[in-house]
Nucleic acid binder design. Structure first.
Length: 157
DNA sequence: GCCAACGTTGGC
DNA sequence: GCCAACGTTGGC
């Protein structure tokens, strides 16, 4: 099976990589995704062992701040049934819940955070979905090359 | 805070 | 099925 590579976005005010580092086993369920395209990636393509860039959005500076591994594959996102949860989805049918999630575990925080502007300046990364116009997906695929280039820029070693 | 670019909703 | 209105994302 071929390993895939991903990028997930999170607003650090909601859930930052520091929060992930302090989570039990440095692992969290990636709940709250409410976009069908992103859901399809999570449900159909994210597999255990896939590697995931962790991106901070809506902050200053926006940046890839580390990377993770998928440690649990698609299962029901319980928050869709919880009226008190921000991501409550009243139309969710318990028989066939639309929203799923995976668990990701922190592998490494970057020494050098890879900012959005640095990504835009790197011609090797010009095709990343992240920097393409109008892209709002919170979960998106990246290529093996893009993933390696970001790790290099992050100076993980 | 602004606003472009989307995605979703709901009337028809 | 169309499409206007509305809500959200997310960079700046």
């Amino acid at each position: 099976m071929v390993k895939k590579y991903w990028l997930v976005k999170s607003e650090p005010a909601e859930f930052s990589i520091e929060d992930l580092a302090q989570s039990k086993n440095k692992t969290t369920c990636w709940d709250g995704v409410r976009n069908y395209q992103a859901r399809n990636f999570i449900r159909d393509e994210m597999k255990i062992g896939d590697e995931v860039l962790f991106y901070h959005s809506n902050t200053d500076p926006n940046a890839v701040v580390g990377y993770c591994k998928v440690v649990k594959e698609t299962y029901t996102d319980h928050t869709q049934f919880d009226p008190d949860n921000k991501h409550y989805f009243p139309k969710a049918n318990p028989e066939n819940p639309p929203w799923v999630m995976v668990d990701i575990k922190l592998v490494k925080m970057f020494k050098n955070r890879v900012t959005l502007s640095a990504i835009k300046e790197n011609y090797k990364l010009k095709d990343m979905k992240l920097v393409q116009r109008g892209n709002r997906l919170s979960v998106m695929p990246v290529t093996n090359k893009e993933f390696d280039e970001i790790l290099k820029m992050g100076n993980i070693n």
